[in-house]
Amino acid sequence: MNFFKKIKEKISSQTETVTEKFREGLTKTRDSFVGKMNDLVKNYRKVDEEFFEELEEILISADVGVHTVMELIDELKDEARTRNIREAHDIQPLITEKLAELLEGAEGETKLKVQEDGLTVILFVGVNGVGKTTTIGKMAHKFKQEGKKVLLAAGDTFRAGAIEQLEVWGQRVDVDVIKQQAGSDPAAVMFDALQAAKSRNADILLCDTAGRLQNKVNLMKELEKVKRVITREIPGAPHEVLLVLDATTGQNAMSQAKTFGQATDVSGIILTKLDGTAKGGIVLAIRHELDIPVKFVGLGEGMDDLQEFVPEQYVHGLFADVLDEAEAAEN
């Protein structure tokens, strides 16, 4: 149980509340996912072809994606053979380990690149309805609590009510929103916002953009332009381009990550709506194939429910029951 100990140690350095948030937010996800996993171990005492087939289905049901699942299963089969694992019970920690491995990257890469001094610009991109504006509201709240001076740019000039939605968030967390009329050029809004951020000495500028499906070439070009304008005004900016992904999304999330990545050089992912039954397993595949790390997860509707992503926490959230069991066994 070396691996579980490692996880425990890593998360014990974090506050109880964070661990609790993950645990709580992932309850629904865990119930279905780990429940299935436990059943699997119970039903198949031997690690055989059928066992792997069932495991394959569990992973696919979490939207991990056929391709990644197949690779994972092959690796597990190899490992099971070399380590001579025959009992289903013994392979469970191996599965957890492999999943966490897929998510883990270089140390500290899930942290946002916030400038030591001066303005940090963060651009939010994604398809329609994933929760960009809500996420910006929550993140503004987070930075505000850290004592930062935050400004919001209402770059979604297209969708009806989008500017008003951001304004409501601005009032809620008490930060200013830079906006123009609906229908105006989003790049122009960004230009205004950057000037305002500079003159008001803001620390953080969070830029909203209209949701767009990644196969709309013209809209993706518009997004490229928005980014170009930001870079022209402040070299090195945007310091983060965050792709907001809905955890309920299936395999199309890969296409989203690819295309938005090409157009705007996405530096991280925010996985929203994880408090439902969806598992968001596609981030494993995205991490694996495109090497884009998840930086934040949305675990609920509250203002505080946007949490920094910690792979160990995520895996812990998914496997809390298993971990407790393992601990109990050791004591």
Binding site: D246, T249, G250, T277, K279
Partner: peptide, 12 residues
């Protein structure tokens, strides 16, 4: 229903 929904569509 969002056409991009994954496996969770059945639960929803």
């Amino acid at each position: 229903v969002d056409a991009m929904t994954g496996q969770d569509a059945v639960n929803v």
